[in-house]
């Protein structure tokens, strides 16, 4: 890491702690009393013979944002994808341990994966709208799950979802134009609207801003903060500033191990583990 970046990181940490003192101190006590939405116990993940995650245990609290941070290849995305069983689609991937959503075992063979994924929505690293119209993109989930009984219902769901994703004002005149014609930031908000449209309980976001410019990133972060009122959100991010800005709790992963998890302000200002300390102050990663 160059000298310049180091000072940047240091400056960021200053502003981070400032931000957290301003914003989060009041709510952190409240958080501890919140009920837990997702619990993971001793999760191990293998890609073939290679183990990617080692005994990860974490609780995701309801109606708040938890950020997974850590250097590349540390397993944070792998863990996120365990929560809605997206890893099922990867050849040779095996998950051990226990993940419960509202007390229900996610990896129970009897569970309906389709229903699970409707309850746990996902937003991906790269905006991936379908090559369909904006309207059809958002209507996709509701149509599959039969959430709308008629056309009016469907339109209402689409409009509400677009509004919740703060995209409606920008696209209301061109709902029937292709979603791929939007800008990167708009596409990502379209993907968020698409996820919201199925009314999930949990939304997983896998580095949702990594392909976006700072302005689009700011908009998405603002949106995440708004969505917290209605949804439980787990976000993987490379940016520590982003974790500090949007999350209430932060989990730090390193080499497939969950090193430390706690209130965001604590992770960034007074981490208990040396590795977390090193990472958040920019000494490695």
């Amino acid at each position: 890491m160059t000298h310049n970046q180091e000072t940047d990181t240091a400056a960021m940490n200053m502003s981070t702690s400032q931000f957290i003192e301003d914003q989060v101190t009041g709510s952190s006590r409240q958080l501890n009393e919140m009920k837990t939405r997702v619990t993971a116990r001793d999760v191990n993940v293998f890609y073939g013979a290679k183990q990617a995650l080692f005994d990860v245990s974490v609780n995701v609290p309801d109606k708040s944002v938890i950020a997974f941070i850590g250097p590349s290849g540390c397993g944070k995305s792998t863990f996120l994808r365990c929560l809605n069983r997206m890893n099922d689609t990867i050849e040779g991937c095996r998950v051990e341990g226990e993940i419960r959503l509202d007390g229900q075992d996610v990896y129970d063979p009897k569970i309906d994966v389709v229903e699970l994924r409707a309850r746990v929505g996902m937003v991906f690293q790269k905006p991936n709208p379908f090559p369909k119209s904006i309207f059809e993109n958002v209507a996709y989930g509701p149509k599959i799950h039969g959430l709308a009984s008629n056309k009016t219902d469907l339109e209402e769901i689409v409009v509400t979802s677009l509004k919740k994703a703060s995209l409606f004002e920008e696209v209301k005149d061109r709902l029937h134009e292709p979603g791929t014609g939007l800008s990167g930031g708009q596409q990502q908000r379209l993907c968020i609207a698409r996820a919201i449209a199925v009314s999930p309980e949990v939304i997983l976001m896998d580095e949702p801003c990594s392909a976006l410019d700072p302005i689009a990133t700011a908009k998405i972060e603002e949106l995440i903060d708004e969505l917290r009122a209605n949804f439980t959100i787990a976000i993987v991010t490379h940016s520590m500033q982003q974790a500090a800005r949007v999350s209430q709790r932060t989990a730090f992963f390193h080499l497939g191990v969950l090193v430390e998890e706690g209130p965001t302000e604590q992770i960034f200002t007074a981490p208990s583990d040396k590795r977390t300390q090193d990472y958040v102050t920019g000494r490695f990663g």
Binding site: N84, M86, T89, V114, E115, L116, R117, A118, G121, M122, F124, K126, N128, P129, F130, P131, K132, Y140, G141, I144, H145, C191, R194, A195, V198
Partner: peptide, 27 residues
């Protein structure tokens, strides 16, 4: 057909065949 598009559909709770019918084949 990009993997991301298939993942997007599966992530919304579509089954394999729904994904193929509604996303992969049209694309």
């Amino acid at each position: 057909v990009p993997r991301a598009m298939i993942d997007g559909s599966i992530g919304l709770g579509a089954t394999r065949s729904e994904t193929i019918k509604r996303v992969v084949l049209p694309a």
